[in-house]
Amino acid sequence: MRNELIDPFNRKIEYVRVSVTDLCNYRCGYCMPEQGVHPDGHHKEYLSYEELARIIKVFTKLGVSKIRLTGGEPLVRKRLHELVEMIKPYEGLEDIALSTNAHYLDREAEALVKAGVNRCNISIDSLRPQRFKNITRGGDLEKVLAGVDKALEVGMKPVKFNMVVMKGTNDDEIEAMVDYGIEKGVEVRFIETMPIGPAGVSMMDQHYAAEKILKRIKAHVGADLLPSTDRSDAGPARNFHIAGTNARIGVISAVSNHFCDTCNRVRLTARGVLALCLGQEDSVDLRSPLRDGVSDEELEQIIIAAIAKKPERHFFRENVHNIEFRQMVQLGG
């Protein structure tokens, strides 16, 4: 029987988001500055795949059953499927997921699925090529949509779209994104802007509330939105079936209606920092003890002690212009 990670508020930690890099080939305004996070090019501090795999193995011994590989953009790190192959055999690991901008997914999807990736979330904030290029500061919508098609072709399931809704920028595409999701058989999740890092804080004047999004979707589809209670929906999104169809949508209302009471996750950055909350500074360095030669048992105790420090909630609404200690791109979303 495996141990369990229980935080001070009786929440069971079953899910770790693992950032493999904080580099990204896109520069979405809510996520990172135009020059990137580390324009000086010093990237030697990243955990190796072997180090990441070792930490993940300890987490699985402690009851974690889901790993999501994130970035930055995870597919800018070469041969990501090799990390997946390392961790796939771990006992108790039920789900290996990917979050990506899909720019390179057409090239990588088949190898990732063969290695053990089950599902993916794709960031896509516009279906208009020039607007998409503007939002991402240079992104190529055609390559992203090719990545979507490839993910579906090789059997990633589910494939979900993540659309950050920005007032005055792309909020006029909510209905079009719903239609595209229905056409592709893909669940679309609409995300409120979040005040994380200077980049995120700078975008908060474009915040668009989840309840307004739901109201518009309901009017557009002309049907009720029925709350979904599938186990696979466990996470921050409120998920809905569109009545009379197989289509699903979700909203992530991190600012207007937080979901902290059911938080079941922590985040491991590419540089080995265990971030305990998306909106708080609480974190623990795992890289240093790892490289100093701690045993797996000692690493296990460090992680258990870290979870005991997990805060109850973020304060996005209360401190909407003060959360500037980390960029979103460094946390893996």
Results as ranks from 00 to 15, higher is better:
S256K: 06
V273I: 08
L276M: 06
D292M: 06
I307G: 13
S295D: 12
E298P: 13
N246S: 14
S295C: 05
L278M: 10
H258F: 02
S283M: 04
V294Q: 01
L286M: 04
H241R: 14
T245E: 05
V284R: 00
I303M: 05
D282L: 01
F240D: 04
R231N: 09
L268R: 14
D296G: 15
D233S: 13
L276S: 07
V273G: 03
G272D: 13
A270P: 12
V284F: 07
R231I: 04
N257M: 08
S295L: 00
G272L: 02
S253G: 12
A254P: 11
H258P: 15
C260F: 01
R291F: 08
T229K: 14
R231V: 07
S283H: 04
N264M: 02
D261N: 14
A243W: 03
I252T: 03
G244D: 09
S283E: 15
S283P: 08
F240P: 13
I302S: 06
V266S: 06
Q301N: 12
G244K: 10
E281D: 15
Q301L: 02
A237H: 08
A308T: 12
T269L: 00
I307V: 15
E300Q: 05
G272A: 01
A237W: 10
I252P: 10
N239S: 12
L276C: 11
E297A: 11
L286D: 07
R238Y: 00
V251A: 06
Q301H: 05
D261M: 04
T262Q: 14
I252D: 00
E281I: 00
N239A: 02
N239F: 01
S288C: 00
I249A: 10
R238L: 01
S228M: 13
G250W: 03
S253E: 03
D285E: 07
F259G: 13
N239I: 03
G272N: 07
A247Y: 05
A243G: 00
C260N: 09
T245Y: 04
L278W: 05
E281N: 12
L286H: 02
G272E: 10
A308F: 03
S253H: 04
R291N: 11
P227K: 13
